[in-house]
Design a protein around this nucleic acid. Structure first.
Lengths: 225, 225
DNA sequence: CCGTCGGTTCGGCGCGGACCGAAGCGTTCC
DNA sequence: GGAACGCTTCGGTCCGCGCCGAACCGACGG
């Protein structure tokens, strides 16, 4: 009974469309300023300020003051996983009403970042490739040889769980999260193998990325989609 | 952006302490009548009626009208898993303020049902036993020999995933859910190996259960708690 | 030093929703 | 048939909160 009080409070934090929009924006894993988020959600700066304070004190976001800026970011991968899990549960999004929204939805389904790792069809392609190489098991645990494979890409294990599953809300299938998923995503971004589309969470595999993935044995033909 | 609208709506369903209390009660996996839930949450029947309608139309609950009764239950295991995941996230419950609440919390931590399977220390003990027998892997997937072992206990595979992990909010470690977890819980209840405490979700291992678990090789000494 | 800018605080408005009691409806029991 | 029961619908009240604009504060820049 006491635990449900906490549940209601957590849910209340996400029960507002403006705060939910903030969280969705922050799912790109970067830190945003208060003003950016306000503009993104189309609310007054004062309104955004109050929402951010609630999200921070609720533990969903962390803030980082720097000069006259207030940067906020998701408090950690666990928040991203909760958000993806809830979005997956909330079910297939209603079909978009405008052409603009439809193309944005398609871009997100094709590939996106989920906080610090890859999601969407791109994430599933990556998972399939890693599975084929024996880097991860079907449950997305990293294997012994998989660890060596990752080390060659500059990965070093940390306290954080190496491989874990994160439910993909467009594909309805888990993709690779955890330290390994985050590292791979970082490497791909560094090498220019994937690139963000505009300022959104959506990403695409670049031509260099297609070559790179083929050479690593992650794909045979170019990923299409 | 459209997906977050759905998230906010889902969150709004759980953002009320009365509705959250309903869901918690229903986590025992049984169907409750509207009046029972109203009394449980200490609200007027009319209030409960409106809440239930919202939860049902939101897809969290299913209802089953029978005569003058309205039975409601969680819409499925996925709802239970969402609730447990969110409760786990919401963090350690604030320490209970009354002796009564403290003893209830202790009972829940010792053992409880999580919709249709076992949770709490009892659930973790079960998982450890199954792991020791090689019935499940560390990721809680059912092994080949494990399936035979389950069949001997009357289990037959279905469309539902056989073994899956469900995060335990008191133990902070996953326990066994899915068809296998549900079947085992059902068998234990049938055989009188576990017993509900009062009308709550809390369960205890009976003396017969301790013998049964030992004979199955799930435990060596009696489970204590 | 003053203007601009990012952010916060405060007062006030308006909506949504949580709650109850009363009344109504269909079912069940006597 | 009548009473009791389980539940729902409807008014009505009240509170929380999402929103804004205005005023304010501190940081930065010329």
């Amino acid at each position: 009974m006491a635990g449900m009080e906490a549940l209601a409070q957590l849910a209340a934090l996400l029960a507002d469309r403006t705060r939910a929009a903030f969280c969705e924006a922050l799912l790109d894993g970067r830190a945003w300023t208060a003003t950016e988020l306000a503009a993104h959600a189309r609310v007054a700066p004062s309104t955004a300020s109050e929402h951010l304070s609630r999200l921070v004190s609720g533990g969903l976001l962390v803030e980082h003051r720097q000069g006259r800026h207030r940067y906020v970011a998701l408090a950690g991968p666990h928040v991203a996983e909760l958000l993806e899990a809830m979005t997956a549960f909330a079910g297939p999004a209603p079909r978009p009403r405008t052409l603009r929204a439809a193309s944005a939805a398609r871009a997100l389904a094709r590939g996106r970042t989920c906080y610090d790792h890859l999601a969407g069809r791109l994430g599933i392609t990556l998972k399939a490739g890693l599975l084929g190489l024996g880097v991860v098991t079907g449950e997305l645990a990293v294997t012994e040889p998989g660890l060596s494979w990752l080390r060659e890409l500059g990965f070093t294990p940390s306290r954080r769980q190496t491989g874990r599953a994160c439910l993909d809300w467009t594909e309805r299938v888990p993709h690779l999260a955890g330290a390994a998923g985050a590292h791979l995503c970082g490497v791909f971004l560094e090498r220019g193998w994937i690139k963000r589309i505009g300022t959104t969470r959506a990403v695409v595999l670049t031509p260099a990325g297609e070559r790179g993935w083929r050479e690593l044995g992650l794909t045979r033909a170019a990923a299409s989609g």
